[in-house]
C-alpha cells in the first residue's frame, strides 16, 4: 500500500511538471516582447531595439535576413486610391501580388486548418442588377424613390471561377481596406493597437493586438483578417523588405489588413496591386497634390465609394470612364 501511495504522489508530481518536461510552451513570449511599449510612445532608441529583436527572432525562426523599417509618413501626403470598375476584369492578379508582397499566410497544403489569408477580395456583380428596369430582388437594398437598382455587396459572389474572365454580363469590384477617414475599426480597438497615420493609412501594431476581433466586426468592408492559426509561409517566399506597421511576419492571434503597401509607398513606389494590374484599372497617388493623377480622376470621372451611407469616408474610390 505504501508503495502505491508513493507511486501515486510521484505520478501527481510528474504530471505537474510535465509541461516543463515536454517543453510545452505556456507563454511563448520573450520578456522584451512582453514589456514592449506602444509603437507611438517608443523613442527612436527603443524602436531600434525592437527592430533588432524582431530581426533576430525571424532569423532564428526562418533562417533569413530581413530588413524591418519604421519609415515615418511624409508631410503633405495623404494617400488615395482609385479603381476603375469598368476596366477591372476580375482576374485576381492583384490578390496574389498582395499576398506575395505582404507575407500573408499561404495556407498549408498538408494541414487544411491553416487557411490562406488574402487582403483583397474580388466580388462579381451582375450588370443586369444595375439596370433600374430590373424587377426588385431580395438583394436590392438601395432604392431612390420609384427607381430600385443597385447592389448589396453583402450578398454578392466571392467564389466565382469561370474558365476565362471577363465574363459578358458581369463586372467585378475588388474590395480591400478602404483606409477610412473616420475608421470604425480604430474607434472600437480596446488596446489602441490600430490607428490612423498622418498619411491616412490605418496601421496595426501586431504586438499590441490582443485578437479580440472587435475591429473585424466594426469594419463594413471585410478588410480585416484574423490569424486563427500560426501563419504558414515558406522561408524562401518571404518578402524581406518589411515595415514594422505593415508586412512584417505576423503571429497567431492577431488581426491584419491592407496598408496600401506601406513599405513601398513611403519610399515612393506604387503598391503591389497597382503594379500588377494587367488592365491598368488601379490608380494611386497623393490626394493633397492638385497635380496628381488621382486628383484629376476624382475631378473628371464618375466616382463613388462603397457604403457611403455608413459615414466612414473611405479614401478608396471607385470610378467609371
Amino acid at each position: 500500500m505504501k508503495d502505491s501511495r508513493r507511486n501515486f504522489i510521484k505520478k501527481i508530481a510528474m504530471l505537474g511538471f510535465s509541461p516543463l518536461a515536454f517543453k510545452i510552451p505556456v507563454i511563448d513570449v520573450s520578456f522584451e516582447e512582453l514589456m514592449q511599449k506602444h509603437f507611438k510612445e517608443m523613442s527612436e532608441e527603443e524602436k531600434r531595439e525592437v527592430i533588432e529583436r524582431l530581426e533576430r527572432e525571424y532569423k532564428e525562426k526562418y533562417g533569413i535576413d530581413v530588413k524591418i523599417k519604421t519609415t515615418p509618413a511624409k508631410e503633405g501626403v495623404v494617400w488615395g486610391y482609385a479603381l476603375n470598375i469598368q476596366k477591372c476584369i476580375g482576374c485576381r492578379r492583384c490578390v496574389y501580388a498582395c499576398v506575395k508582397e505582404n507575407n500573408q499566410s499561404r495556407g498549408s497544403k498538408n494541414d487544411p486548418t491553416i487557411p490562406a489569408i488574402q487582403w483583397i477580395r474580388v466580388i462579381r456583380v451582375e450588370k443586369a442588377k444595375l439596370n433600374p428596369e430590373t424587377k426588385a430582388k431580395a438583394d436590392f437594398r438601395v432604392g431612390f424613390g420609384e427607381v430600385r437598382a443597385g447592389i448589396d455587396i453583402e450578398v454578392t459572389e466571392h467564389y466565382y471561377s469561370p474558365d476565362k474572365v471577363p465574363e459578358k454580363d458581369y463586372f467585378y469590384i475588388p474590395i480591400q481596406c478602404q483606409q477610412c477617414e473616420r475608421p470604425p475599426c480604430v474607434k472600437v480597438c480596446p488596446t489602441k493597437a490600430t490607428w490612423k497615420e498622418p498619411d491616412g493609412i490605418i496601421v496595426i501594431d501586431y504586438n499590441w493586438c490582443i485578437g479580440c476581433r472587435y475591429c473585424m466586426a466594426a469594419c463594413p468592408y471585410w478588410a480585416r483578417h484574423f490569424n486563427w492559426t500560426e501563419p504558414y509561409i515558406e522561408a524562401e517566399e518571404i518578402n524581406t523588405n518589411m515595415h514594422y506597421l505593415g508586412n512584417r511576419l505576423r503571429m497567431k492571434g492577431v488581426v491584419e489588413k491592407c496598408t496600401f503597401c506601406i513599405q513601398r509607398t513611403r519610399e515612393g513606389r506604387f503598391p503591389a496591386c497597382v503594379e500588377i494590374c494587367p488592365v491598368g484599372a488601379r490608380k494611386f497617388g497623393n490626394l493633397l497634390d492638385p497635380e496628381s493623377e488621382i486628383r484629376k480622376i476624382l475631378e473628371s470621372k464618375r466616382v463613388f465609394r462603397l457604403k457611403e451611407e455608413a459615414g466612414t469616408q473611405p479614401k478608396f474610390f471607385y470610378f467609371m470612364d
Binding site: 476584369i89 492578379r93 495556407g107 467564389y159 471561377s161 474572365v165 488592365v279
Partner: peptide, 18 residues
Amino acid sequence: FSPIEPMPTPQEKLLSFE
C-alpha cells in the same frame, strides 16, 4: 484584349453580414 484565366478562388470564408 483576349480574356484571361482568373487566379484561384479564396479559401477563407468571411462572416455573412446578412
